[in-house]
Design a protein around this nucleic acid. Structure first.
Lengths: 180, 180
DNA sequence: ATAACCATGTAAATGGTTACATGATTAG
DNA sequence: CTAATCATGTAACCATTTACATGGTTAT
């Protein structure tokens, strides 16, 4: 699934500007399984407009820079449905943190301690954030997807909490207590 | 963390060929947080050799194509340690499956049923696989990392199992029972 | 014999990030 | 007055994927 398809998904929920789509990706119900920056969203929208999956209208609204509001077309909805029917590509996960954890024996204990704290805090914030996603009037499929994110984040936080000592015992005092 | 650094990590565990490194990534204890194909591993190794982080020797071993066995150098170990001390980039997750699930109301029930079965089977296989990773003599940090993968996969499988009905109720009979 | 596995690499194309470039509005 | 937020886009660069190209070995 590329950024174009993700934008179609975002627009299926309602008209939006590129800026709003980015916020939906990073704060909304997509945040745990998709990410994209402006540098990929704006070109993706332009391409969708070019091939008729999306229309755009200028909304010179307030005084600020003109909002470019995008709407999905019938062809766009068909493209989305067709993409959804295709066998999904396997999940792609890349975690620097787990890579670091794997080699904890090369790191000083205080750095491990910092990383553990940061990680647990991040998961707690992310889970709290997903819990606060507005679920009123949300179809069951969205609720499923959001619930999945919460469940996985909570499981990860719980695992780290319960097994932190495994990492702590790995860290060696081989390096000056604070690295880099 | 790029493919180069991941290769340094792989070689930190012992000498290996590009082919073996790929197997380590896809079947070994890295499988749940990193992936790379030959097309990125071979160029990464060549670059590591060029800048002195890795040495390579030809092993015309058996009768088959010559194995190119790579070893990490002291400079390579230092580069690895330095990369590990840097603040880890946030995890990157992209899931086509969750995207599909989010829009289950656009899909026919039998397709949802198939996707649910596939997904649970995949998680069960992946968890089983990680459980079978050889942990004899494995330092605690590696055990932590592998255990993390198992915990998250199990939590995901359990969530899907428990909430499948949410997705089923979303699917509509709007399309011919089998899609595309 | 046929498929799967071992083994190495390159080249083109894709997809995405980061940096650049700009500017108004609102809240502290 | 300063920072954050709203708002749009382009261009250069980077990383990665996919397809190509090759060939021996082992197990069914």
């Amino acid at each position: 699934m590329d950024v174009r398809t993700a934008c179609l998904g975002a627009l299926h929920r309602g008209d939006a500007t590129g800026y709003e789509i980015k916020k939906l990706f990073e704060d909304g119900p997509f945040s745990h399984f998709f990410a994209a920056g402006f540098g990929s969203i704006y070109p993706a929208l332009a391409q969708l407009v070019r091939n008729g999956h999306v229309t755009v209208r200028d909304d010179p609204d307030d005084g600020r820079s003109t909002r470019r509001v995008h709407s999905i077309t019938t062809a766009g909805r068909e493209a989305l449905a067709s993409a959804l029917r295709a066998p999904p590509a396997p999940d792609r996960v890349r975690s620097d943190w787990l890579f670091m954890a794997f080699f904890a024996d090369l790191l000083p204990p205080d750095l491990i301690e910092t990383r553990l704290r940061e990680r647990i805090a991040w998961f707690e914030a992310a889970a709290t954030h997903l819990r606060q996603v507005d679920r009123t009037g949300m179809p069951p499929a969205c609720a499923f997807s959001v619930g999945y994110g919460i469940a996985v984040y909570e499981a990860a936080a719980a695992y780290i909490d319960a097994n932190a000592d495994l990492l702590r015992s790995a860290a060696t005092a081989d390096a000056p207590t604070s690295g880099q």
